[in-house]
């Protein structure tokens, strides 16, 4: 029998939508407009979130925002300790990142190790003018000196907790849960 877990909804669909709208505005401000903005979603779910934010910005600003996807599996610092290998998702970058402001979009920021992998990988693609981080949920618990520039929701969590993000495109609904 799996141990009994306690599940709370942090963000329902409406709350998530509001958060994403706030984040889209914040990203556009951070980038001082869209001229050199590129959104890069982290596999998985970050890709869908980046897509939503890009569309929101496009609606407001009336211009297309290039977006791409990044899979960081090959840059993880724990590949040595896993048994069977993790599945590698798609990486595709729409433009050359030189002189661009790349905004990484991820679903949850926790230890910061994924972000480190993201930065390493982006470095192999070129030299953006600036890299910023935009996350839906910041749950604390950093193991590296990393912070997000745009945050949808801050949540306090403990070591055994899990934050589960679901997106309509992949999971059939928009919701963020805290599982203790």
């Amino acid at each position: 029998m799996p141990p009994k877990s306690d599940r709370t909804i942090l963000l329902d669909a409406r709350a998530m939508s509001r958060a994403l709208q706030r984040m889209a505005v914040a990203v556009a401000e951070l980038a001082h407009g869209t001229a050199d903005l590129v959104l890069i979603g982290i596999q998985r779910r970050g890709v869908e979130l980046a897509e939503r934010i890009a569309k929101l910005i496009e609606k407001d600003e009336g211009v297309t925002v290039p977006r791409g996807a990044l899979d960081i599996t090959l840059y993880r610092d724990d590949l040595e300790t896993v048994g069977p290998k993790p599945v590698i998702g798609e990486t595709r970058l729409p433009v050359d990142l030189t002189d661009k402001h790349a905004v990484i979009v991820d679903d949850v920021l926790y230890t910061g190790r994924t972000v480190r992998a993201e930065l390493d990988e982006l470095a192999d693609f070129g030299r953006p003018k600036r890299i910023s981080l935009c996350v839906l949920v910041d749950r604390g618990g950093r193991e590296l000196p990393i912070q997000a520039d745009v945050v949808g929701q801050v949540v306090k969590t403990g070591p055994g907790d899990r934050v589960e993000v679901q997106v309509e495109e992949l999971d059939g609904r928009d919701q963020v849960d805290l599982v203790r």
Binding site: L74, T81, V82, K85, Y110, G160, V163
Partner: peptide, 24 residues
């Protein structure tokens, strides 16, 4: 090469128990 390269699953278990898991 990627699929065959030796992982050491026992370290993963230790890591999970110690750090509370996850690389987010």
């Amino acid at each position: 090469l990627y699929l065959l390269a030796g992982g050491r699953p026992e370290l993963a278990d230790a890591a999970k128990r110690g750090a509370g898991g996850g690389t987010e």
